[in-house]
Amino acid sequence: MQTTSKTMLDTFISKAELVSARVSRVKTLEEAFAYTVALCDGKEMCPLLVSGCELNLSEPSMQLCREKIGKIIAAPGLDQEQSTALRTLCADKGMELIHSGLRRHLGGLDIGFTVCDLGIAETGTLVLNSSSEEVRLATMVSETHVAVLPVSKMRGTSYEAEPELLAFMGNTPSYLAFITGASRTADIERVLALGVHGPLELHILLWEDN
């Protein structure tokens, strides 16, 4: 059992990394919070990601860029206790943590933080129940998506995940997302570019929950 799941994890990691996801391991959810806050904290000092606001934009689009002040992490879907733990870490660094009202931040967020429902090893895919509009937005308008995947939720193939996928879809209304790597396009001269609409980076934290 141990070896099977190790192979599965290795497959997942290699497939996810193939599509530019950054995969790390964490032992606890607190560790995932710390990772996220550190990542967000590092962003300004070393602005790796540029989402377009530095470029020559039309006036209305430029206006949208000006709306964002300070660093924001969106983590809808956390329970009270988890929220409090993450908020304390954010506060130490002067960051804002939000879990709702994401429509007020459509210009952009720094990080969207989610805990995923399933993983599919064969393609390095995350399955995220996105029935909550806030979850959908957090994983779309943020520059970076940090996704925690409990190792116990790893499945080998999409077929193996099928009964669980059907269960999610049966609980209507349902909005279920398969996410594999960051948002990408090759529409100009077939040159790959990340972050055309959604996150420019995807960080996956494998949470060794078992």
């Binding site: 429509r103 909550s132 049966g170 209304p173 909005y175 997302a177 398969f178």
Partner: peptide, 16 residues
């Protein structure tokens, strides 16, 4: 191997 996103929509979902 798979596209970045596959989206499954069942029913009229939440929309603020």
């Amino acid at each position: 191997a798979i596209t970045s996103y596959v989206t499954w929509i069942t029913g009229a979902n939440a929309c603020a």
